[in-house]
């Protein structure tokens, strides 16, 4: 027997499985709520009620929609490539869920005499893990668009390819500033390092670059050219219906939550509260989720406010404004930290 690397965490394997199930369950319970939240909020922004027919205040709308989508007949265009067409939404949702494992919801707690870290995993490579899965999630978009065998889907996927590559660079560089300041790649370590001051104050430029790039990475307005419905019907998932469509929709919302989680962790002190308030440990996940919801609200707010960019504007902005800004931020941070 060859001696392979022995990965030993301080938690037994069954706690890790329970943690995975809990995080997964909570995230999937929040997702339908996010859809109704976004539509209600958009309605308010646009001077209308939003969905208000199903249940009290229309709160049962997601349930009705899930039933509707789940009972639809699965169909695909005759020009599509069968198995790729089925696999692509799975890639999209798998990578989104995998990235969620990194978001720390709290510090290591003692639950029934055992040490349990309130996060999926705490890897030594930190944000690189998220970028690895973001890189793979591109294939969910690309294969979905290509395998649909439709021009609109294909064009949407092509835009997605160029856009994701362009903005991933700026997003990564913006986080390097935080990593240099904290001196660690571990996300829990970064949160601990923010005990004195949350990093959005010293790293304001990095935070702004990260947020703008995140809008592009999650395909949200004003960078939602991948699914620009005025010109591409719905972009890469035009040909999808039923549960496959829901998979893409959930992946989009899940990505939004992951990006919010990363932003909260890297720039807004994770589970820490300002003014020296130290609540008991069980409050930590609630603090993180509340901060994440604030970011999600911001995402929706921007969608309701800003018009969509043109494609060449998007590319020029990504390469000519955002990337130099991120590099400059990195340079300045490095000089300040070293000196």
């Amino acid at each position: 027997m060859i001696a392979f690397a022995n990965v030993s965490y301080f938690e037994p394997w069954w706690i890790q499985i329970i943690k995975g199930l809990v995080i997964f369950g909570v995230a999937f319970a929040i997702l339908p709520l996010l859809t109704i939240y976004e539509r209600k909020l958009l309605g308010r922004f646009q001077g209308r009620y939003g969905p208000n027919r199903v249940g009290p205040f229309g709160l049962m709308q997601p349930l009705a929609e899930i039933i509707k989508f789940a009972t639809k007949e699965p169909s695909r265009p005759t020009t599509s490539v069968g198995y790729l067409y089925r696999i692509a939404p799975m890639i999209a949702i798998l990578t989104a869920v995998a990235a969620l494992a990194l978001v720390p919801f709290g510090d290591v707690q003692h639950i029934f005499g055992r040490r349990v870290g309130l996060y999926g995993i705490d890897v030594s490579i930190g944000p690189l893990y998220v970028f690895a899965f973001a890189g793979i999630s591109f294939y969910g978009v690309m294969l979905g668009g290509w395998a649909s065998g439709s021009k609109y889907s294909f064009l949407g996927a092509m835009r997605g390819a160029a856009q994701l590559i362009s903005y991933e660079v700026s997003q990564g560089l913006a986080l390097v500033g935080v990593i240099i300041t904290a001196g660690t790649l571990s996300l829990t370590g970064i949160v601990h390092a923010q005990g004195g001051m949350w990093y959005f104050i010293p790293q304001l430029a990095g935070f702004l670059v990260f947020m703008v790039a995140s809008f592009a990475e999650t395909n949200r307005a004003p960078f939602d050219l991948i699914e620009a419905d005025a010109e591409l019907v719905a972009g890469y998932f035009t040909e999808y219906g039923g549960t496959s469509f829901v998979a893409y929709l959930f992946a989009e919302y899940m990505n939004m939550m992951v990006v919010s989680g990363i932003a909260v962790t890297m720039f807004f002190g994770g589970w820490l509260l300002p003014f020296g308030i130290h609540p008991p440990g069980w409050v930590d996940p609630l603090v993180v989720i509340a901060k994440m919801m604030a970011f999600v609200t911001f995402f929706i707010w921007v969608r309701a406010t800003l018009p969509r960019l043109r494609y060449d504007q998007l590319m020029a902005f990504g390469w000519k404004v955002l990337l130099p800004l991120a590099t400059l931020n990195l340079l300045v941070t490095a000089i300040v930290v070293v000196s």
Binding site: F4, I125, L128, M142, F154, M158, E168
Partner: peptide
Amino acid sequence: LLRAEFVAAAQVVVYAGAVMVLYVFVVAY
């Protein structure tokens, strides 16, 4: 499996996430 976490992540980010994206892009076009 060899505990080279950074190399693994770099492999995915650089090759699968960036270089191959360009390949797929060109071939699909």
